[in-house]
Each structure stands twice: as C-alpha cells, then as structure tokens.
C-alpha cells in the first residue's frame, strides 16, 4: 500500500530546492531513507544535484537523528539538513 510522508528541508538544502517541504507518496518498493533519497534524486534538477551531496546531509525521522538504512512508515516526518552549526 502507498505510504504518505512529509519531507522537510533546512539550510542550504532548503535554499537550493527553493522550498521547505514536500508531501511524498512512497511506492511499495521504497522502504527506507536511502530509498527515499533515490526517489527524490530521480525528480531531476535541483533534487539530483542536492542529493548527490548526500555525504553532507543528515537525516532525522520524527525529529530524531536517523541512519540511511532506517525504515519509513506512513505519516513519518523526515527531515534533511546539513551538519549543525549553532551555538
């Protein structure tokens, strides 16, 4: 069954994509963060360029830091952002 998730973008990722969020319907074949990233990269420019730099991108699921292999579920809030620079 297709799963609806919310994807948030911050800092330079938000700037380059020109948006703060997307609502994404995950096909049954996509089950984890890495799969979501591949799906987003296939949307073409500017997604492809942004997600080509995935070594500079962190991910959080439901506001907790996560790994690329972490599974996704319907209703999840997934956020992509660069390493943090506060303080």
């Amino acid at each position: 069954m297709d799963q609806q998730i919310t994807v948030l973008y911050f800092a330079w990722i938000k700037s380059e994509l020109g948006k703060t969020s997307d609502q994404i319907t995950l096909p049954a074949s996509v089950g984890d963060v890495a799969g979501l990233v591949s799906l987003l990269a296939k949307k073409g420019s500017p997604y492809a360029e942004v997600f080509a730099r995935r070594d500079k991108i962190w991910v959080a699921i439901n506001q907790n830091r996560a790994e690329w292999a972490q599974p996704l579920h319907a209703g999840d809030e997934v956020a992509f952002f660069p390493p943090v620079t506060g303080g």
Binding site: F10, A11, A79, F81, P82, V84, T85, G86, G87
Partner: peptide, 10 residues
Amino acid sequence: LKTKAPFWKR
C-alpha cells in the same frame, strides 16, 4: 549543543 542541536548559521 554545537554538534547536536539543529541550528544552522548563515
């Protein structure tokens, strides 16, 4: 907090 809190400076 400099390495964990989700803040970004521009």
